[in-house]
C-alpha cells in the first residue's frame, strides 16, 4: 500500500510509543493536526493492510517468565514444506525463516518453562526425524531495536 506523509509521521509516532493517557489517539491527532476520527481510520487501515502487525504492548518474554531459544535445523531441500508444517504447528514457534546455509530453517521457540523447552525440542526432533538441530539461546543481548524511521525519503 502507498503511505502518504501523514501516514509516515503517524507510523513514526506510534512506533516510538502510544500515549498512556485516557484518549491516546486524540493526543496523536493533536500533534499531527488532524482529527481523532481521521487518526483512528488511518490506524485501522495500517492495521488491516498489515503494515502495523501489532498495536500496544510488546512484552519481554523472559520477564514474562518464558524461556526461549533460536533454533537452526538442517532440512533436506525436498522436505522443507513438510518439516515447516510440523515446526510451525507449535504455538511457541513465532518466527520461521528459510536462510541460505546448510542450516536452512531458522525458527524461534518460546515456552513457559526451561523444562518445557527441552521437551519441545526433543518433540520437534522426533516428529521431523531430523536430529541436526542447533539450540542458540541468547546469552547476552547487546541490542534490540524495532523502530524504522520513515521520516527521510
Amino acid at each position: 500500500m502507498s503511505l502518504d506523509s501523514t501516514d509516515k509521521q503517524l507510523l513514526n509516532m506510534v512506533q516510538a510509543g502510544l500515549p498512556l493517557v485516557p484518549e491516546p489517539y486524540r493526543e496523536l491527532a493533536d500533534k499531527l493536526g488532524i482529527s481523532e476520527k481521521e487518526t483512528l481510520s488511518r490506524l485501522k487501515r495500517l492495521c488491516d493492510t498489515g503494515v502495523i502487525r501489532r498495536l500496544g504492548a510488546i512484552f519481554d518474554s523472559r520477564r514474562v517468565g518464558y524461556s526461549g531459544t533460536l533454533c537452526a535445523l538442517k532440512v533436506p531441500v525436498e522436505r522443507i514444506n513438510e518439516v515447516a508444517a510440523v515446526v510451525n504447528s507449535f504455538p511457541g514457534v513465532t518466527h520461521n525463516y528459510l536462510r541460505e546455509h546448510d542450516y536452512n530453517m531458522w525458527f524461534t521457540l518460546l515456552v513457559p518453562s526451561p523444562e518445557k523447552l527441552h521437551r519441545t525440542i526433543e518433540e520437534i526432533k522426533s516428529r521431523t526425524g531430523i536430529s541436526d538441530l542447533l539450540m542458540l539461546p541468547a546469552t547476552r543481548i547487546f541490542k534490540i531495536r524495532v523502530n524504522f524511521d520513515l521520516a527521510e525519503e
Binding site: 507510523l11 506510534v14 516510538a16 502510544l18 502495523i52 502487525r53 500496544g56 510488546i58 520477564r63 534490540i144
Partner: peptide, 8 residues
C-alpha cells in the same frame, strides 16, 4: 513490557 507502541 519492553515497548508500548506499534510493531510494523
Amino acid at each position: 513490557i519492553r515497548r508500548f507502541g506499534a510493531a510494523v
